[in-house]
Design a protein around this nucleic acid. Sequence first.
DNA 1: GGTAAATGTAAGTAGTCACTTGCACGTGGG
DNA 2: CCCACGTGCAAGTGACTACTTACATTTACC
Lengths: 192, 192
Amino acid sequence: MCEKSTKERIIEAAIELVNERGYHGATTKRIAVRAGVNEVTLFRHFGNKKGLVKAAIDSFSIPESLLHYLDSQFTWDLEHDLPLLVRQYHEVIAQKEQAILISLREAGTFPELDQLIAHIPTMYKEKITEYFQQMITRNKLREKDPEILATSFIYMNFGYYFLKNRIDATKGPIDVDTFIEQNISLFIRSIE
Amino acid sequence: MCEKSTKERIIEAAIELVNERGYHGATTKRIAVRAGVNEVTLFRHFGNKKGLVKAAIDSFSIPESLLHYLDSQFTWDLEHDLPLLVRQYHEVIAQKEQAILISLREAGTFPELDQLIAHIPTMYKEKITEYFQQMITRNKLREKDPEILATSFIYMNFGYYFLKNRIDATKGPIDVDTFIEQNISLFIRSIE
DNA sequence: GGTAAATGTAAGTAGTCACTTGCACGTGGG
DNA sequence: CCCACGTGCAAGTGACTACTTACATTTACC
């Protein structure tokens, strides 16, 4: 009985199409067809196209609970905690990938997107900085600037996520587990 | 006397506008206006819009000479060579940033863009792999998989480039020199 | 100075765009 | 029973799109 509401289906279709073809390429007609809805319904719900896309953007939110979950899982052992962090970070990016790409594409059309999306890496950077700080006070990490460590870490993972399918795929793209095993463990060995 | 040719001005305007508003948002009229040219001139030169954008894309090419230049500058001292590499890599990315962003935006509309842009990180990855390999045979680097080192390195730099303006800019964005001094030197110390 | 190529101007085409209007249909709650 | 509400359908709006044609003008070069 509880199918997705018409509104939800329209928003989903809008996100997909803006991703595929950009804001101007995602016509209201195509959005309506993909949502399995008449085009007028779209205007009745959201007023106009911009209103629809804004609604779509607003539908992305970063769940605070994920960060709290991390706190409960930390064992203060790098070999255990960092892979945990990375996996969750990649899961979150994967979920928001469409929004992140839209933000890269449509920053000109929707400047407010930029801020929204910047939140994800910033929040994780803060979380990781905090974690490294803790590790230093617990004497489990050589004294280093935790913020620098954290940014390096974020950069590396962001780079991985957006290049993995673009860099020479002779052996096919590297999956997260291999990435963690190789590159991250290198990172760990280098700092502990 | 040697001003930019009409063709060049049109291509420049096209690149700018596709970046600002996406393929569909960059109308031929707007491109013509920005290029300071009549709209028909645009069609006379490139046939149609797709032809113009393809010409714009083709105008990006990676100068092989830059890589050869690196070879001549290497001193086989990490502290000297890696900053050199990073600076050039960032210069190249900065020059191609518009193309890279277009490739992220319009991968759907122009699949061939993907390949074109993937070349930059791939080529640098190969170059750096080769460099690390040399360093190992010269006994200046502990035995490690040079390809893994190289990919980590590329990931980190790519991440830096695209996040530097998006991650919390409390102290303002980190400039390349500070980045090299802090994050890269950390990387160097971790592997040598 | 003449000529050919490059560019500008004006006008128009057919198609698509976002968006509106009016009316019909069904369904669920009072 | 009925009526408000969500939705579909058909038709149409003016604006804008990519692109064309025919002709005038400028520019470059011999």
